[in-house]
Design a protein around this nucleic acid. Structure first.
Lengths: 243, 243
DNA sequence: CTAGATAATGACTGACCGGTCAGTCATAGT
DNA sequence: ACTATGACTGACCGGTCAGTCATTATCTAG
């Protein structure tokens, strides 16, 4: 999703948020759609720009619908309404429902790789590293819609083996090997225990738990993600007595 | 799911596994169903026993179907076929699809609470405790169909707030408070750091990651759960230098 | 201004599936 | 042996929704 259009999309979402009963009042719907489109796309915008914005609007709407209803239960009609677009339009931008889903995950998660690889390059002293890891997760994932995308990947990934493979090859594998080499270098300096480098997943584990928790149990018992992750990495990185 | 019927169910699953195209050949289907039933329930079995076994067979079949297709996409027709039963029969045992799902989770996860609370009571020395935690997870969850149920809860829980609440109140909350008081006592003795008791989720985090991983990425990169969990708890419980 | 090109629409279709219920038949009771 | 019972069946119904395509709107080049 291009940054440029985030605000635009936000406006659209507000406009089309109110739930409607599924009556077939075409005229009322038409007005709503026109209002949404007017807000989203100034008449002056060139075709190229409009096209990109529509794509983004559809992706953004799809994320909302998939997140709240799940992939199967989400209706493309609702995605279209939310995006201020007719259902047929979705098929001008995406081959089918499934490839819409794939594009969504591709677009949101791929950029993470660079960010984390950059973190691996910088040779930071341990306590600073701990902070950076926590802040990066909280700011770039947890406080972002990426949280929802990851939740989606966790929930639905199993039924899309192709997508799982793409995600593993293009995202996970790279992140893991970046973190692993980072940990190995720190271990060589005696800063972190050897075992940790074998399972970089351990570093991320509380982050994933927080994502799952926020979707299921937040309303019963809120969870301070930043504090949990801080506690965790500090325990892992803490200097220990020689055995 | 009663233990007694596990083998029976396994046999049934084998018998009804072969996929059929959805032709309407009633007679062929009928024979298959009868064969399955004959294998599952000896004619001599009393009505009560048969009833319990059918319930279990349906739950077992539902777990398979829900696990592989997801709740929405799973067809009750397939659950029935897998259980060697007609679709209507399901409705004699469960009110609807959703309550079948709820019963499944209820039945499989509730027993865990007692086991873990017992672990909390026993005052074990630290290294033994670490081992017990790991073994308990691996043997009672990871190598069990409970793994699939938890995966299901993670994937679908969001769309069943009632179920999420039940699970939180009856399972999670109890487990968390048991583990927390265990950790607090250990912290008081200076055996584990204070911060850990505030976030018992941290202990379980790698286990959850392993469950997710096994569903999505096992085929690309297998993960040694036991070793990862062992590494993790030992890092957390390791004696550390005074700061 | 207009014609031709391109984009967007939304009514429609056909497949699909949860849930129902009238009818069947194995079993229990006498 | 002969019912009475209720467990079980599966064809069917109604609603839903992904995907299509004939029609309409919008844009742009000349």
């Amino acid at each position: 999703m291009t940054d440029r259009s985030v605000i635009v999309v936000a406006i659209m979402l507000r406009l089309s948020r109110s739930r409607k009963t599924p009556t077939r009042r075409a005229s009322r719907r038409k007005r709503a759609v026109e209002a949404a489109r007017a807000a989203a796309v100034p008449a002056s915008a060139s075709r190229k720009v409009r096209t990109a914005e529509r794509r983004d609007a559809i992706l953004s709407a799809a994320l909302d619908e998939f997140s709240t209803r799940g992939f199967e239960a989400a209706r493309l009609d609702d995605v279209a309404r939310r995006a201020g677009v007719a259902k047929g339009t979705i098929y001008l931008y995406f081959r089918d429902k499934e490839s819409l889903f794939q594009e969504l995950i591709r677009a949101m998660l791929t950029p993470l790789v660079g960010t984390i690889e950059a973190l691996g390059e910088a040779e930071l002293p341990l306590p600073a590293l701990a902070d950076r890891i926590v802040e990066l997760f909280v700011r770039e994932v947890y406080e972002t819609r990426r949280k929802d995308v990851i939740r989606l990947m966790i929930s639905e990934g199993r039924r899309f083996p192709k997508l799982a493979e793409f995600y593993y090859r293009e995202v996970l594998e790279r992140i893991i090997s970046a973190v692993r080499s980072l940990l190995r270098r720190a271990a060589a300096r005696g800063e972190v225990p050897e075992g940790l480098a074998e399972f970089p997943q351990i570093i991320a584990a509380p982050g994933l738990v927080a994502i799952i928790w926020s979707g299921l149990f937040e309303r019963f018992e809120p969870l301070d993600v930043r504090k949990m992750m801080k506690t965790h990495v500090e325990l892992l990185f803490a200097p220990r007595r020689a055995t």
